[in-house]
Simulated scan of single mutants.
Amino acid sequence: MTPGARVQAAIEILDLVIAAARANGAPADRIVGDWFRTRRFAGSKDRRAVRDLVYAAIRACGPVPVSGRAAMLRLVQEDSNLASLFDGQGHAPAPISPDEPVAAGGVAPPWLELALAESDIAGADALALLTRAPLDLRVNSLKAERDTLELPEPAEPGLAPHSLRLPHGTQVEAWEAYSSGQIEVQDIGSQLVCAALNAQPGELVIDLCAGAGGKTLALAAAMDNRGRLIAADTDRARLSRLEPRAWRAGVTIAETRLLNPNREAEALVDLVGQANAVLVDAPCSGAGTWRRSPEGRWRLTPDQLARYAAVQARLLDLAASLLRPGGRLGFVTCSLLDVEGASQAAAFLTRHPGWTAQDLALGAGEARGPGWRLAPNRDGTDGFFVACFRKT
């Protein structure tokens, strides 16, 4: 592919990404992969170059662009060398007209930028949400030790006790250490907030929103594969991914439970008042993970944010009912918005006067309301809020 053809390919993919964002369709990485699967003429360098253009354009636009071309023209304003590729030759895009629309810049749609600013995320802190994230690993303590693990490429120890950091794009899935379950891909921030629950061997622990089981595997390692660990979720497809991951990691204590949306308590009735600890890694806006999925800020609306907050409150109340006296409730969201963090945690304490918030010492981040917040600019991690409550 010529450089101009690569730009045109990126424009076509951006049109698909924009349409999917408006319709809550497939994520950008899947759209990019599907586009190239039907175009075998593109080599590996072409795919990498086009993908880089797509994501650079997504990051350059604040609100949802009117078109892929408008998004690419926003990128032209940041990289003037691209303008010469709009010459209409071959498969290159048509020349630029002085009056055609150019997407607006910024960190996010205006309403969302305001919500971030009201949560004290502005300036460099907000811009850091659009940088490229490194690749973080968790060394699986059931099979390996960080200090003695040998990997094909050098990795830096991270802030979490079992974490390693590698450059973005490192192909760890091809490594023997990955296939043998010695390492898992997991952001260092995710590891820190998971460790805040302080799961212990022999306990009954519930991962109430387990998804594909990333935090479930980390909890199992912290429990040294001893005790009982319930991984529950309403998404059958995501939950089904846990079993092969657990087998690879050597995790034997994880049990899965499929829950019915809005009727989650029915499948957990036998656990009421029994758990030592419950982790609520609640559904949220994902505003702390835009480094990995920058088009996520185009998908969010004020109504959706309000619905996320309502679900979080309901799941926290459900989790509270599952704990025995003295039990611990960990609340986590991958968001920097207070409505999904400090304000949500404060509201829980208001509804449950018999509970107290625990002091946290994560080794990174800062206090935020009754909990703790990690952010890309300050901590080099994805954005997270975590609070831990104890039932007195």
Score class of each variant (00 low, 15 high):
255 E>Q: 12
256 T>I: 08
257 R>G: 07
258 L>R: 12
259 L>E: 09
259 L>Q: 02
260 N>G: 10
260 N>S: 14
261 P>C: 03
261 P>F: 05
262 N>K: 11
264 E>C: 04
264 E>S: 09
265 A>M: 03
266 E>F: 05
267 A>F: 05
267 A>C: 06
268 L>S: 05
268 L>Q: 01
269 V>N: 04
270 D>F: 00
270 D>M: 02
271 L>G: 02
271 L>K: 00
272 V>N: 01
272 V>H: 05
273 G>M: 04
274 Q>W: 02
275 A>R: 01
276 N>K: 02
276 N>T: 12
276 N>S: 09
276 N>E: 12
276 N>W: 03
277 A>W: 01
277 A>S: 07
278 V>H: 01
278 V>W: 02
279 L>A: 10
279 L>G: 04
279 L>H: 02
280 V>Q: 01
280 V>G: 05
281 D>Q: 14
281 D>Y: 13
283 P>D: 12
283 P>Y: 09
283 P>L: 10
284 C>R: 09
284 C>V: 07
284 C>N: 13
285 S>V: 08
286 G>V: 10
288 G>I: 08
288 G>E: 10
289 T>F: 05
289 T>K: 11
290 W>G: 06
290 W>E: 02
290 W>Y: 06
290 W>V: 01
290 W>M: 03
291 R>I: 01
291 R>C: 07
292 R>M: 07
293 S>H: 11
293 S>G: 06
293 S>P: 00
294 P>S: 08
295 E>D: 15
296 G>F: 11
298 W>I: 06
299 R>W: 14
300 L>F: 13
300 L>D: 10
302 P>Y: 02
302 P>C: 06
303 D>R: 13
304 Q>T: 13
304 Q>S: 12
304 Q>L: 14
306 A>G: 03
306 A>D: 06
307 R>S: 06
307 R>D: 13
307 R>Q: 14
307 R>W: 03
308 Y>H: 15
310 A>P: 04
310 A>N: 07
311 V>C: 10
312 Q>S: 09
312 Q>C: 07
313 A>L: 09
314 R>V: 01
314 R>Q: 05
315 L>Q: 02
315 L>M: 05
315 L>A: 08
316 L>S: 07
318 L>V: 00
319 A>Y: 00
320 A>V: 03
321 S>Y: 00
321 S>W: 01
322 L>N: 03
322 L>V: 02
324 R>Q: 15
324 R>P: 03
325 P>G: 11
325 P>M: 04
326 G>M: 05
326 G>P: 01
327 G>I: 08
327 G>M: 03
327 G>Q: 06
328 R>P: 01
330 G>N: 02
332 V>I: 13
332 V>K: 10
333 T>K: 10
333 T>L: 11
333 T>F: 09
333 T>C: 13
334 C>P: 08
335 S>P: 10
336 L>T: 10
336 L>R: 09
337 L>G: 12
337 L>C: 12
337 L>Y: 15
337 L>E: 11
337 L>I: 15
338 D>S: 15
338 D>C: 14
339 V>E: 06
340 E>V: 11
341 G>C: 12
341 G>I: 11
342 A>S: 15
343 S>N: 12
343 S>A: 15
344 Q>D: 11
